[in-house]
Design a protein around this nucleic acid. Sequence first.
DNA 1: AACCATTTTTAGAATAATTCTAATTTTTAT
DNA 2: ATAAAAATTAGAATTATTCTAAAAATGGTT
Lengths: 140, 140
Amino acid sequence: MAKYAEKILEIVESRCSHPTAEEIFYALRRDYPRVVRATVYNNLHRLCKEQRIAKVSLAGMPDRYDRIARHDHLVCRKCGRVVDIELPDLTKQLEEQAGQPLLSYDLKLFYLCEDCRPAGRQADVVAVDSAASASSGDIG
Amino acid sequence: MAKYAEKILEIVESRCSHPTAEEIFYALRRDYPRVVRATVYNNLHRLCKEQRIAKVSLAGMPDRYDRIARHDHLVCRKCGRVVDIELPDLTKQLEEQAGQPLLSYDLKLFYLCEDCRPAGRQADVVAVDSAASASSGDIG
DNA sequence: AACCATTTTTAGAATAATTCTAATTTTTAT
DNA sequence: ATAAAAATTAGAATTATTCTAAAAATGGTT
């Protein structure tokens, strides 16, 4: 059907980088130099609606797109990088605690990635230096 | 110090609506008709940096601002409304499962709110009708 | 009170991400 | 081959946010 949908799906799934619409647009344009941003957005909307990809957003950044399979994210508070993490499915536990049937949930864990962690000691990292952190206080 | 910071803090904390910058701007303008959006953003940034408020973002909507005290959110998949929910603190559990020291986490539970829930039966609500839902597939 | 330095606010232009609209092209079914 | 439907294009429009430079407010010093 849609000429680009499968290609875009492939781009999203083949990367672990949670690409933005812009990144997908550039990747797609390598093969199809005439595609236009609106086409990328159209296809992303459709793929989301069809539950074939998921949109992930973080405060202050453009939305990102991700594979659909259940997994969670580790987000570095300092550099903002997002990496996947496979935690056990908490749906049952959360449904009990919330007293509500849930459709799904989104869980982001904030930490300091290796690159941003003060060298040497790492056990006593408890808070982000508020001056150094570009995005502290943000929940995304 | 900053003329508006306390007032903005009060607006954010006094509402359970997680107001957007725009909503805060209008609320503030009722008392101070000359304030300008940039002032609101300046103060919001500062309050975030000082960890006095938190920024919350959801896919496809403007960022929202929230009180800082730990709590989670229920997000309706159909109408997008966000309400607070007080779940037990999962930091310890998640640190163990992730094998990482965490700074914090963000948990959003997706459900169908009362207004959006198909009337009558509610036990067998398992998925969102993909045509009817404006934002299905989104993780924010 | 007058002065200077610093901080905050204002006004409005600029940017970034996304959406919209209308025309054109492609695809599908007949 | 043709009509109808769907997808894509081009580019304008909108929305949220940031930036910049000037003006105003604030604070501390003499």
